[in-house]
Amino acid sequence: MNKKRKAILDDGCCPELVSGAEFDGIFEIPIIKKPEKIIIPKMIVPFSERNKVKDRKQAIIGFYEMDPQFASVLISPKDFIDEFKSYGGVISPDCSLYRDATLSAQITNVYRNRVVGSFFQRKGIYVIPQIRWGSAETYTTSQFPEKIAFLGVEKKSIVAIGTYGCIKHAVDKYHFKAGLEAMLEELEPDVVLVYGSMPDSIFGDYLHSTRFVQYDDWTKIMHGGDR
């Protein structure tokens, strides 16, 4: 009887996903390489809503939703290779980095993000790294000599971040802005895609640092009827 894989850490941490990968840092995080040409997508569509897009090549798939919604991609990314090739690309999975989660869990979800993103990239899919930080230990060197949240991403490239649901309270805004500043200093990205709002109180100080491209969240797009 075949045993169904339940999580990305089954079967020896899925060694087939890192075949041919390069690694970064003390935790050997798989690297999502800078693309030969930076392509800015017309729209970002959530994974669970991807079949509602009329022109797939104009859209890139994002994972700005609850983790169970895209668990199938984490569990068996190879099942999505052909489908994802029909889109303009994918943003690496936005695995949750809750500030109150253990640091080991946060590091694991950085790994999940990069391992799946690098796997798709090596299969010929255009991949933009999703950058997510959690507690201060992930975006500073207070705990480790490296800023964990930014490992596995090359400098002066294109990255994506999400504000949707992440800047509701004062403490959320504080950590988001602190992590944003750390990310800009560490990665020096040429382009930053922003899924969700860009309040001036958070982004105003950094608009000169790089090119930001803002995308409305899917709920707002649906209410506006723009697909």
Rank of each mutant, 00 (worst) to 15 (best):
L74H: 05
S76V: 00
P77G: 10
K78N: 11
D79V: 00
F80G: 03
D82S: 14
D82I: 04
E83R: 05
E83G: 04
E83P: 01
E83H: 06
K85F: 12
Y87D: 01
Y87S: 01
G88H: 06
G88D: 01
G89Q: 03
I91V: 08
S92W: 02
P93S: 09
D94S: 12
C95Y: 09
C95S: 13
C95M: 11
C95F: 10
S96V: 14
S96K: 11
L97I: 04
Y98W: 14
Y98P: 00
Y98E: 12
A101Q: 15
A101G: 01
A101R: 14
L103G: 11
S104P: 00
A105Y: 13
A105K: 15
Q106M: 13
N109L: 08
V110Y: 05
V110I: 14
V110D: 05
V110F: 03
V110K: 08
Y111N: 12
N113Y: 06
R114T: 08
F119R: 05
F120Y: 12
F120G: 05
K123P: 06
I125V: 14
Y126N: 09
Y126C: 05
I128P: 03
P129C: 06
Q130I: 00
Q130W: 02
Q130Y: 02
W133G: 01
W133L: 07
S135R: 11
S135L: 05
S135W: 10
A136C: 01
A136Y: 13
E137C: 11
T138Y: 04
T140P: 04
T140H: 09
S142A: 10
S142I: 12
S142M: 11
Q143L: 13
F144S: 09
F144H: 09
P145L: 00
P145V: 00
P145F: 01
E146R: 03
K147C: 10
K147H: 03
I148T: 10
F150Y: 08
F150P: 04
S157F: 04
S157N: 10
S157Q: 07
V159G: 07
I161F: 07
G162E: 08
G162S: 15
Y164W: 14
I167K: 08
K168L: 14
A170T: 13
K173Q: 15
Y174M: 14
Y174W: 12
Y174E: 13
H175L: 14
K177F: 00
A178L: 13
G179K: 04
A182N: 09
M183S: 09
L184T: 05
E185H: 06
V191I: 15
V191P: 07
L193P: 06
Y195T: 03
S197F: 10
S197Q: 13
M198H: 00
